[in-house]
Amino acid sequence: MNLETKNLTYEYDAGTTQAVRAVDDISISIPSGQFVGIVGHTGSGKTTFVQLLDGLLKPSSGSVYLDGEDINEKKYDRKSMRAAMGIVFQYPEYQLFETTVLKDVCFGPLNMGLSQDEATKYAKEALLKLGMQEDSYGASPFELSGGQKRRVAIAGVLAMNPKILILDEPTAGLDPEGRDEVLGLLKKLNESGMTVILVSHSMEDVAKYVGRIIVINDGKVFLDGDGKEVFSHVKQLEEIGLAAPEVAYLMQAVHDAGIPVSTNITTVEEAASEILLKFQT
């Protein structure tokens, strides 16, 4: 499903003297199957933006189109839109409420009108994908560790089998291992055809996994392109309080030290092979 925004604008406290334009005239298009990273520092409007994408906020002006249809139109079938678009909020573990893990994950699919059997099937699939084993399904979600809660909460969205998955800082507060697992899963989901939109302030995460990066600053699209293209604007990124991945700086330093390596590099693996190449020759 193709997602598109046109002149999307959102103001908090609209009409008062304290009106804040959190999203300012954003027009982008996200075709089906892309893995997009939305990056911006705290308060740049990225969370507001993804809430607009999912129709949880009504835009002050402009529109969001899902497969060409305006999702804020009165007659629009929001229920099927919610089934098609899943959103995982920041710290999603705080939305758990059921008595058992399995029941909680079933909540979404059941709301979509699936039968109990189907819902259970989808829920189990989703839990397995997130590495939750059968023996924990009967446990209360409140007894789990923080990382496990996070997984159950993400599974709760994944079980709805969305075509588009939006995640707002899904790795915040996770240990490096948990982070790699979640991001790796997203990569796999994307490879199986799901559109994934990852909101993050961590350039490292985004650089490693994402195909396209949209940098948002002050509610506006600041840069939009693939990793190499975006990270070639290191200076501008620093001006708005963001940074390129550490490797980019390292390669720059190596280059400045007189070793003719390419500076157009965004991941540790690429950097390693590039440097090794120079030493071997």
Partner: peptide, 15 residues
């Protein structure tokens, strides 16, 4: 917090 939880559950299809 209520606002956030409400949005999260609406997104999960809560009516």
């Amino acid at each position: 917090e209520t606002d956030r939880i409400m949005k999260a559950q609406i997104a999960r299809g809560a009516d």
